[in-house]
Structure formats: C-alpha cells, structure tokens
Design a binder for these strands. Structure first.
Lengths: 216, 216
DNA sequence: ATAATTTTTTAGACATGGCTAAATTAATAA
DNA sequence: TTATTAATTTAGCCATGTCTAAAAAATTAT
C-alpha cells in the first residue's frame, strides 16, 4: 500500500469506529483535507484491492482485510507515540505529526522489536489502546480521574486535553504516564479532589480531574 | 525535498565522496537502480533547486547547500542504524533497508532527541562516522583490528563484513559494538591474533581481524 | 410530488517520477 | 582523423494522486 492509501484506510477506520458503520465520501474528504472527487477516485482503487466495500453513493466500509490493515497502522502510530514520549521526552501534544510519518514505515520486524523495547504498552500517551499484532484491541476500561471514588487507586494512562499548558501543569504536579494516584477525598461542593501522588497530597480542580485518564 | 530527491542527493554525495569529485549520470543510475534518462530528468530538477552544479554531458557535483542537505540525510540514516542495533537488537546486517526508510522522516526535533537518547554516538554500526547537526564529519581514525600492534588497546566501532554468518561468529566471541579489546600477540606466521576480551583470551584468524574496525 | 439543495461521481487536466526508443554528444579505436 | 562505440539527453508515453468544473443521484424542503 502507498502512504496515501494507508492514510485513507486509517481515516475510514476512525470514521467508522467513531461515528457509524460506514464513512461518507465527504466525511473522508474533510478528515484528510482533500476533495470529494479525490476521495471517490481513491475509494475505487481501495475497492479494487478489496480493502473496502463500496457501492456508489452509499459510502464505504472496511472489509476484514481492511480492518486488519487499519489496525496495524494504528498500532504503529500509537507505539511510535509511546516511544516519542517515553524515550525521547516529547510532550504529549508534540507527537502526533511525527507519528503520522513513522506509522508508514514498512517493517514488521521493526514494529515488533519496538514493542518489545517499550515493554508491550497497552495504551498510547493519549490513553488510546494499542492494537496487538493481530489487530485485537485490548479492552482496558479507562476512566476519568473525575469519576473516581474516595480511596480508589489507579494509574495515569493518558490525557484528554493535550495542550502544552495543561501538560506543563501536570509536570508541576509530578503527574506523568504510569504515575500511581490515590484519591483521598472528593469535595462535593465543587468536585475538586485531594489526591496522593508519590506520598504527597495535592489538590486539583474538577477541570483538571476531568482531563486525566486512569486505569484502575 | 521529496523522498526521491533525497535518494538522489544521497547517491551523488556518496559517489562524489568515494570516487572523484563528480558523479556521472550512469553511475547515479546504477547506484539507484534506475535508468540514465530518469537521472537526467531528476538532475535537471535538482539543478533548478540549486542543490547540484550541472552542465550537460559533464556529470554533477553537489553545491554547498546540497552537501549540507546530504550530510543531514546521512546523519539520520546512521543515527537510526545505531538505534536499531543498540536499542532494538537488530543485527548489523539487517539495519540498512529500514534505515533507508527512516532517514526520510522530516523532523529536526526527532533526530536531535534521538541523538541525545543514544548518547551522541560518533560512529554507526558499520564504523562509518555520523555527521553532526552542521554536517561536520568527526574524523576519528578507525583502523582494522589486523593493523593493531601487540599490547595495543582499542574499542570495536564497526565491521567491514556484515554478513549474518560473521556477526553470529562475533556474538560467539562476545564481540559487540563498544567492546574493549587488547591485542596480546600477533602471530607472524599467519597473522592470526591472540586478543583479550572481557578478561578472557581468544584467538582469531587474520581474516576475522581484517573485518573488525577499531578506534584506538 | 415536485422543486431546490446537497452530495457524489465523472470527465478532463496537471505535476511527479518513472520508462522506452531515438537522437545527440563524447570517447575510443583503427 | 575518421569511424565506431559508449554515454547522455530528448521526446513521448504511462501510472499515481491530486484538482476543478460539470453531470448525476440522493436528500430536503415546500
């Protein structure tokens, strides 16, 4: 597959996952910042290659082959994101564009070795699951920190807001990927929280808590 | 620059370094496994972009701009090779093709962070120097193990033969990148050597010694 | 149910990077 | 020095992936 074909497959994958079971020509065009006519052309080609089901005027769905291919691209993207944040100290909001390029590198061996090197992470820095070699998505239930109860423990697996402002704030709080957190008390008045990080108690606002993903 | 343009720039860089000061159309074609006519077309374009000096029928030379660009590609290629071998446990003969793809990833930040992560290596796994950010090539004098004198010490920085057969043999001898070696004695009869690796003495043939690069 | 609007597809064009075959220039041999 | 051979360039074609403009189909609004 060419880089371009891979971009289309990934876009269709995300659109059909997030919205409904099929993706419309114009949704794909919007997603990829291209024109509907270009999308129609490409869809034709992908249909010939049996990675999408396509009937004129009715949008597209990935075939099983397409699903597996898409999952492998997402896998690469998320493993690279994890690498960039964990090993190269990129911040969580800087990784996307670079991962967008790296995800197209064609080497099965490279990605499996990277997986080993990283210790088989299950989530990327945004808290999204990393599909395995077979395209299976681990169903780890992530919840927002704001949804946790008093005395509950969990591990930070991602963020919802990945603006550098927020990330710098998290740095100050000593919150990073993998940080263990225990909720001490949730204040009913404003939903702010007292939590324990590294044996120290800190207070965070409801807004902050609603932007941190936790694995319990 | 496109991937293709970068491939041409790198090819011209290597040809003019290794052979003479200019690269001929047919040499470039051979290097890139393409046709002379395609090379002529691309050379025209690179000339328009001021990365090569070109006069019809007289081959090409990189401009200063071209040299700098080429060095940055070589830098990326060699840093990635180092990463693959040191971090992902690729063997020295497996890295080239993957590095060939990775070298095109466009992110200044990525490559500088990678350099930091790897500890600013000066040589890739084949013993070739890694240019710095400014395209400067460190002039570390590498010699062949076979050229070392009795009692001399050095560090393994690369191999000449990177067949998997040879690499597996080196593994058996516990010789890797960075391994410190001391020559005990060179046998005048067949040029075989007794060397010390990790406090243990091993005997290697002249052929083996002539395929290992050492930094003294 | 038909008209108006939106979405999608088709048709035709363009840029990139490759090819073959023919023409041109340079290099080598007689 | 001319003829032959080799290298290089030109001309014309093709595939990929994009675009605009026009046509066709589907959706919605009256």
């Amino acid at each position: 597959m060419t880089y371009s074909e891979e971009d289309y497959i990934k876009a269709i994958y995300h659109l059909s996952k997030d919205l409904k079971s099929f993706a419309s020509t114009s949704d794909i065009a919007a997603q990829l910042d291209t024109k509907a006519s270009s999308v129609t052309d490409m869809i034709q080609k992908l249909s010939d290659k049996k990675v999408v089901h396509y009937k004129k005027y009715q949008g597209v769905r990935l075939t099983e082959k397409g699903e597996i291919y898409a999952a492998s691209i997402v896998r690469k993207h998320r493993l690279w994101e994890y690498f960039l944040v964990e090993k190269l100290n990129f911040s969580w909001d800087e990784v996307h564009d670079v991962a967008e390029e790296l995800e197209h590198i064609k080497s099965e061996k490279l990605i499996e070795r990277l997986d080993v090197f990283l210790g088989f992470p299950k989530m990327d820095p945004h808290g999204d699951p990393i599909p395995d070699q077979h395209g299976q998505i681990p169903d780890i239930k992530k919840i927002l920190l704001s949804a946790m109860k008093d005395e509950q423990r969990g591990i930070v697996i991602g963020v919802k807001d990945s603006s550098s402002k927020f990330l710098r704030y998290l740095d100050k709080l000593n919150i990073a990927l993998g940080t263990e957190i225990k909720v001490l008390e949730k204040e009913a008045f404003d939903n702010s929280m007292a939590i324990v990080i590294d044996h120290k108690t800190v207070h965070i606002s409801a807004i902050t808590a609603a932007n941190i993903y936790i694995k319990t």
